[in-house]
Structure formats: structure tokens, C-alpha cells
Design a protein around this nucleic acid. Structure first.
Lengths: 160, 160
DNA sequence: TTCTTGTAGTTGAAGAATCAACCAATACCC
DNA sequence: GGGTATTGGTTGATTCTTCAACTACAAGAA
């Protein structure tokens, strides 16, 4: 089947402006939150790992579930968890019921670090995001990204 | 001055749900757009560089302006442009009026690649973002990130 | 049982991002 | 003019991510 040769449907000026605003804004937001977490030797990805573990029963989660929860590749998670393990924030436990499985488990030290970092991080999220935006727009943003998630899931990733 | 010891103002359930939806959604969106551009050997950052150059007079922009335009650090841009130069997409021209300055300049080959990639990229942006979201929410999202940008600029980055 | 297929996770090498240090040219100031 | 601070950009080491194998276990079929 031939690729379409019809004229591309470019974005109009408003659509493009919004798209670029999003690109810049999300980049800035990430920058700020990362900079903020760096006081604690963390980045946003590592912080999300700590949060996910802290909210889970026994403070442990299977590696592949964790990868999904923090939207990282399995490989990346392996490396990240290895680093965090070296830093004493998590440890690994082999899963007795499925011996392929590995639990990432939050150590007391990791929990303590999370307790220390969380208040400042949440404040930063408020200042730069939640409270920077009016309530209606914030709610709309939630709907918007829910729709984005649905759209990305509706279509399989390109593989060819 | 002592750090505040008052109870942290956690996000409520709705705020938190939206925040996490954003984190997941933006990660997914990036993933998809990157995957899409990879057919052309590009990632989103490199694509933005090509676009910025293509829209500029003489198809060239000073490195530091370009860094701002594509929200990358100067160092990162230097490395990225070096790679792109090796690939023949851009070249460097020294600026005669300010001999510290360097212009990144889009080559014909770079322009051709952009022309090839752009239609598919724009379609992907439409499918996964612009048209995935209803028009009102899309407009709200634009306002929201404009506010985020303002908020991040209102406060200097943490340095201590 | 054995054979096959799929899932869980890791590994190591290669590629990219970050950080601090650096050089060079300009701008400011006395 | 001469000194100092700033700006523009690069460099190389370190850290992090990605990618393509690869091992080990589990599940299902013959």
C-alpha cells in the first residue's frame, strides 16, 4: 500500500503555539523538580521509585511491575535499582513463588530519605505546577493527559 | 533562619491523580514521538533543532540562542550539534561580528531530512496529542503550561 | 516427560546527558 | 590604556540511558 501523498495537515498557529508551550513548559518543570530533588541526591525517576515502593505492601514491588509504575524500561530500572541499592536506599529479594522474580524493597534508609525529601518536593510540585495553574485548567490538564494515555495505548508502537 | 517545621501540605487525591496522570502521559507521549522520529535517525530534541534552524533567516542561529529555543543546556547543544554535523545535517559558521560566536547552520541535507520527517511527525503529534484531546481541554493545557513557565521563571533555580 | 514458547530480569557495550573546568573574546570600569 | 567581570562556546570525565543479547525459570502442548 503506497504511502499517502496528500498534503500534510500542518498545525494551525494556535495549535502550534500550544504545542510549543507544552514542550517548553514541561521541560522547565522537569528541570526545576530535578534541581530541587538533587539536594537529596535524587532525580524524579528515583523519587518515583521510592514513592511507589513506600506505598506498596511490605514496601516491595516486583521489578517489572515497578518498571510499569514508573514508566521506565526494564533495563533502565535494573541499572537504576542497582545504583540505588549501592546507595543503600533499596535492596533486592528473590521471590519464592516465582524464582525468576525479584522484589525491589525499600530499606529503612530509603524510607527515611523519602520522608526527608517529600515535603520539599511536594511544595515544589505545588509552586511550579498545581498552584501555578487555575483549578479549571488543572482539571482540564488531567483530562487531557488521560486522553493522551488512551491515544498512545490505542495504537501499537511503531516497529517497522 | 530555621526551616519550617509545619506539617507539609500534601496533595489531595484529585490533585495527586492529575499529577501522576501528567507524569505518565507526558512520558508516553515522548516515547511515541521519539519512536516515530527514530525512523529518520532523529529524536525530538534534534528535530526541534532542525525546525528552529529552518525557520530562521539564512537557516542559521547562534548556539546560545538555539540552546534557549530548544531548551537545552549549552553543553548538551554543543555535543548534539557536533553529532548532527558529523551526520551532515548542520554545519558551523563563525560569526564575523562577534568572534566568540558560532552559528549553527542547516545544510541542504538537513533541510531535506526535515522535509521528509515533518509530515509524519506532525501526524503523530496530532494523533497522540492535539486531536486526542478535546479543543477546550487543549486550550486549557496551553494556558496551564504558560502559567507553569511563568511560575518557573518567577523563582530563581535552587543553587544552595 | 520433553519440546517449545513466553516471561522476568540482567548484562555489557555503545550512545547520550551532565557537570565542572576551561579558553577566548567582549564589555565594563577606573 | 589596563584590569576585571561577563558572555559564548567547547572539552573531557563521569554518570545515565539505550539497545541487543543472554540466562533462568515457568507454562503449555504433544
Amino acid at each position: 500500500m503506497a504511502r499517502s501523498t496528500t498534503e500534510p495537515r500542518w498545525l494551525d498557529a494556535d495549535q502550534q503555539r500550544t504545542w510549543r508551550t507544552y514542550l517548553l513548559g514541561s521541560a522547565r518543570l522537569n528541570e526545576r523538580l530535578d534541581a530541587d530533588l538533587r539536594r537529596f541526591g535524587l532525580d524524579l525517576g528515583e523519587y518515583e521509585i521510592l514513592v511507589t515502593l513506600s506505598e506498596s505492601p511490605e514496601r516491595r514491588v516486583r521489578m517489572s511491575e515497578l518498571a510499569t509504575a514508573v514508566h521506565q524500561s526494564r533495563s533502565r530500572l535494573t541499572h537504576t535499582v542497582s545504583r540505588m541499592e549501592k546507595a543503600g536506599l533499596v535492596d533486592r529479594q528473590t521471590c519464592p513463588t516465582d524464582r525468576r522474580g525479584v522484589w525491589a524493597h525499600l530499606t529503612d534508609q530509603g524510607f527515611t530519605l523519602l520522608e526527608t525529601a517529600a515535603p520539599q518536593h511536594v511544595e515544589a510540585v505545588r509552586r511550579h505546577f498545581v498552584e501555578a495553574v487555575c483549578a479549571e485548567d488543572y482539571a482540564a490538564l488531567g483530562r487531557a493527559f488521560a486522553a493522551v494515555i488512551a491515544a498512545t495505548e490505542a495504537e501499537p508502537p511503531p516497529s517497522d
